[in-house]
Design a protein around this nucleic acid. Structure first.
Length: 781
DNA sequence: CAGTGAGCGAGCTTCCGCTTGACTT
């Protein structure tokens, strides 16, 4: 018997089909061993020796693999052909206690029968240099993460985190926000002329924008006396080529632009398509297509569109630090143009199919026409540009989208122009001069952020989605919609020798699903840049990657490299702990006109807040949390003073006080011990009547959620919650077993469930430990 | 789940990259 170990179970299944009966193919499910979870687990005084432990969820798997390995004549380590894959093989070799003469390392980067057969015929040994490069990568990330994070706990706030990838990712977002804050839009007047050509309209743009309305106006006035005719007509051939096959990053971008998927959603939908064998592996940085896929495309394209539409192409991967352990993301069978179990899968599959097919299709041939129309007695000219597709080629199937939100503003090209010739006189309909404003650089979406990270070589296909989720979980960044605002602009028109000026309104600045830095994100970022400039440098990853490559080439010892890094880094950490001030992001907003006391905005123990008065003074200062849409950077003195007006007393209801305030979970109204969250109402505005209404609503809702109560035990209730029915007993919640009807529960049954201790939530420590099989013993006590 | 913003300082938090399910109060 032969045992083959790959990284993914779906891959194992496919390969098992290619290999004969003598082969058992199993999966390692990724890494099986890692640095121990607790502490550094890197011996910094002893050549940075790593302390590895088997991952807790892999223990069972390892026992199983050990058994199989023992029974096998040969174990084939077939993990991915990159740094991480090599390390997985090395860890497996060690953990399974394999023998050199009974172990072979094989690699293939496409899952096709010829590729696998070839791999089996060409085994090699584990590449220790490559393994060492991975150990260096792993150890460096642990050192950076586990030394920087505690600095933040001490100097900013507990539970924060920093790391080689996440901290630079946050920096991108903070810096973009600053660029936007410092941006002043420039206005100018864009001039467009409309001519009548045999009943159709020809639109032409002026090659100059005017800075002021006066300039634009005088230009329009001069135009009213001008005759217009075509001076030059140029035709040039053009072409467009298809975009490369999908990698993780480009798939995430296009699924975001075309389908509105978040990067996490794209990955989970792709995962399901992969598991059902519809597409190749979805975490890849390679644009390479297998020969079989290229041949298949040719057949499909010739059949569907004719052989004119076919052109074989290979795409070189251009992204920084690509490891190319897999193929590009493509349908496993290009002959299938529809697949997927639900609409999300079907839409994503369709996108992948079209993109892949398009890469093997002919260029689109275009004809670009430029027409020049001078203005008498002026240097400026109008130009009209048209673009006609002569042969659609790949455009028949797929066009890549862009992130540019203001594309319409910029582009000066239309489709087909009416038939024109040089010298032809034109009849003017009207000329518009419309005030336009320059746009600030765009805020990142998840997908455009991934694009940027890939350009910088930061992060890997398997980490783009988790990184974005981490920086949001830590509270550094939020993904939000923001309303736009109304802006006035001037619109001048020349028509029938008459210049008219109008003022119009437009909405601008609205954002959808964009990434914004939070106050804590800004403070942490500034602190890290001040104190750990090197790690926060956009080139840091690229620089260490170069050294990892040297290690992989056998030209550098991995622990020497780490030593060179760690020496200065660690003293930097010590130095910062000792000398740097606590980072609060404090801003002095001005002084309270009533009391003359200073007002500050800063990060407090519980988040962003404002403070009235000095902490050092005898009289205690007043504090108030910032509201959800406020930030330390932007809040004004007036807005801060408003915040000190809470809590507000609204009056009495049923003989008890009713007040409004903002707490940890947002604005609320309080009555006795009842807290009612405010959703639409403003705590500054809400009045007693409305508050009473809300209190009554909440009581009704609570009543509705009651499934069952017992007179003899008022502390116990069966309730309907977010995740279905549950039992509430003395402020603790208990899950109801699946086979029980909640309506029919008796008090005795309830008490039994409670005593069994099927407690949900909170008691996490117990539940994780009990998984490791000693649970019965623990309970026995 | 809900007022805080300070101080004793136990014991906790945290990284990146490779893979899938388990399961939420």
């Amino acid at each position: 018997m032969n045992l083959v170990i790959v990284e993914s179970p779906a891959k194992a299944k496919t390969i098992e089909g290619f290999l004969g009966k003598d082969f058992v193919v199993k999966s390692s499910y990724g890494h099986v061993r890692d640095l121990a979870k607790k502490g550094l687990s890197v011996d910094v005084d002893n050549a940075f020796t790593p302390n590895y432990e088997i991952l807790s969820d892999k223990k069972k798997l390892i026992t199983e693999l050990k058994k199989l390995a023992k029974k096998s004549e040969m174990v084939w380590l077939a993990t991915d052909e990159d740094r991480e894959g090599e390390a997985i093989s090395w860890h497996l070799y060690n953990v399974l206690g394999l023998k050199p003469e009974k172990t072979k390392r094989i690699v293939f980067n496409e899952i096709t029968k010829p590729a696998i057969t070839k791999a089996i015929e060409n085994p090699r040994d584990i590449n220790d240099d490559l393994v060492n490069a991975q150990q260096a990568r792993r150890v460096l990330d642990r050192l950076v993460g586990f030394e920087l994070s505690p600095v933040l706990w001490r100097k900013v706030q507990p539970k924060l985190s920093a790391g080689r990838v996440q901290s630079v990712t946050v920096r991108l977002i903070v810096e973009r926000e600053r660029e936007i804050e410092n941006f002043t839009p420039q206005n100018s007047f864009k001039v467009s002329a409309y001519f009548d050509v045999d009943g159709t309209t020809l639109k032409a743009e002026l090659n100059k924008k005017f800075k002021t309305a006066e300039e634009a106006k005088s230009f329009l006035n001069e135009c009213s006396d001008s005759n217009f005719s075509i001076d030059k007509l140029e035709k040039k051939p053009g072409k467009r080529t298809p975009a490369a096959p999908f990698t993780t990053s480009t798939l995430q971008q296009e699924a975001s632009r075309k389908l509105g998927f978040s990067v996490a959603q794209t990955m989970s939908v792709a995962q399901r398509l992969y598991e059902s064998g519809k597409i190749t592996y979805m975490r890849t940085d390679s644009t390479n297509l297998s020969d079989t896929a290229i041949k298949q495309s040719k057949a499909v394209i010739s059949d569907k569109f004719g052989s004119d539409y076919h052109k074989s192409r290979n795409y070189a991967t251009k992204s920084k630090g690509a490891q190319e352990a897999h193929e590009a993301i493509r349908p496993t069978n290009l002959g299938v143009n529809e697949a997927g179990d639900d609409s999300a899968q079907q839409r994503l599959y369709d996108l992948i199919w079209k993109r892949t097919i398009a890469t093997q299709m002919a260029d689109a041939k275009l004809e670009r026409t430029t027409v020049t129309i001078p203005v008498q007695n002026r240097d400026e000219v109008f130009t009209a540009k048209g673009e006609v597709v002569k042969f659609d080629g790949f455009l028949k199937v797929y066009v890549e989208s862009t992130d540019d939100e203001h594309e319409e503003d910029k582009k000066n090209t239309q489709g087909l122009l009416p038939p024109l010739k040089e010298g032809q006189e034109l009849e003017l309909q009207k000329i518009d001069a419309i005030e336009r404003f320059t746009h600030h650089p765009p805020r990142y979406t998840e997908a455009s952020l991934v694009k940027k990270l890939e350009e910088l070589g930061i992060g890997r296909p398997s980490t783009y989605a988790p990184t974005i989720s981490t920086i949001q979980k830590r509270g550094y960044v939020v993904k939000e919609d923001r309303d736009g605002y109304e802006r006035k602009y001037r619109h001048l028109t020349l028509k029938d020798s008459n210049v008219k000026e109008e003022e119009k309104k437009e909405t601008t600045g609205a954002e959808r699903k964009k990434l914004f830095p939070t106050d804590i994100g800004v403070v942490v970022n500034d602190f890290l840049i001040d104190n750990f400039t090197k790690i926060l440098d956009y080139n840091f990853t690229a620089e260490v990657e170069k050294e990892f490559d040297d290690i992989a080439q056998g030209q550098l010892e991995w622990n020497k490299m780490i030593d060179n890094f760690y020496g200065p880094f660690h003293s930097n950490v010590e130095d910062t702990l000792e000398h740097s001030e606590r980072a609060k992001g404090e801003r002095h907003l001005g002084d309270d006109p009533k009391t003359g006391k200073p007002v500050y905005a800063k990060i407090g123990r519980y988040g962003p807040m404002v403070q009235l008065g000095e902490t050092e003074s005898e009289e205690k200062p007043k504090f108030a949390s910032l509201r959800k849409n406020q930030s330390i950077q932007q809040i004004s003195l007036e807005e801060a003073l408003e915040l000190f007006k809470l809590p507000r007393e609204l009056g009495e209801f049923e003989g008890e006080k009713v007040s409004a305030n903002v707490g940890r979970y947002g604005p609320y109204v309080r009555h006795q011990n009842q807290f009612v969250s405010l959703k639409e109402d403003d705590p500054m505005e809400v009045n007693l009547d409305r508050a009473i209404e809300l209190i009554k609503e909440k009581r009704e809702q609570a009543e509705k959620n009651k499934i069952k109560t017992f007179e003899s035990e008022p502390d116990l209730q069966v309730l309907n919650g977010r995740y279905g029915p549950y039992i509430k007993y003395k402020k603790k919640n208990f899950r109801i077993p699946k086979d029980v009807e909640p309506e029919e529960l008796t008090l005795e049954q309830c008490m039994e469930i409670i005593e069994k201790g099927g407690k949900s939530g909170k008691g996490k420590k117990k539940s994780t430990k009990s998984k490791t099989k000693k649970s019965t013993k623990a309970k026995g006590k």
